[in-house]
Simulated scan of single mutants.
Amino acid sequence: MKTQISYWFLLGLAAWAVMILLRKNGIFIPVINNHFTDFITVPMYCYLIEYIMNSLLGFHWKPDFKFILTSILYLSFLFELLCPKISPLFTGDILDVLAYFLGGMVYCFFKIRSFSALKKEAD
């Protein structure tokens, strides 16, 4: 079952690419650099795992609330606790954790809502 990559996912990749280019050219937009990229991280991570599972490995899997919540915890632990201890390039920030959480909850809300709508149409 091959599916197309979501336009939202591609838009997120484009946003990250723009942020990288701006940073390399010395342009820093505080809210976008600091928190927007973290806000879209969990939705992009969850979507990428879903895409790999379904399109590349042939499963029929959808992320649920527990998966999204553990993704938030995993990414928060990795990028806000562990990486800052290993490299000075990373900084631990509670607002980044909040951005992961909000992004995950927005993704969860829209995914669960779309799953519910599809289920009702099937019934």
Rank of each mutant, 00 (worst) to 15 (best):
D93N: 03
I49H: 05
A17I: 07
F28W: 14
T41W: 15
I49Q: 00
M105K: 00
G12L: 12
I29Q: 08
K120A: 06
W61T: 03
T41E: 14
I52L: 13
A17E: 05
F115K: 11
K66C: 02
S71V: 07
A99T: 07
I32M: 09
L82S: 09
F39A: 02
L73W: 08
E50G: 10
A99W: 09
V42E: 07
I27R: 05
L57P: 00
T41F: 15
L69E: 02
I5C: 06
D123R: 15
V31W: 15
D38L: 10
I72N: 06
L98Q: 04
F28T: 13
S76I: 05
L57V: 01
L21P: 01
W16T: 15
F67R: 11
N33M: 04
T3K: 15
I40E: 06
G26E: 03
A117G: 02
I72C: 08
M44D: 01
Q4W: 02
A17T: 13
E80M: 03
A15W: 00
K111I: 07
W16Q: 15
M44T: 12
I86V: 12
S114W: 12
L81N: 07
K85Q: 04
F90C: 13
K120E: 10
Y7A: 04
P88Y: 03
T3M: 15
S87R: 00
L81I: 05
Y45D: 00
A15F: 01
D64P: 01
G92Y: 01
I72L: 10
L78R: 09
I20Q: 11
M53G: 08
P63T: 13
L57F: 09
P30W: 10
M105F: 03
A99E: 10
A117D: 01
F77P: 06
K111Q: 09
D93M: 01
W8R: 12
K2G: 09
A117I: 05
A14N: 02
K66I: 07
F67W: 08
T91C: 13
K24I: 04
W61G: 02
Y74C: 09
F39M: 05
S87I: 02
F67A: 11
A99V: 09
M1Y: 11
V42M: 03
L102K: 03
P63H: 11
L98F: 08
L73S: 14
L81Y: 06
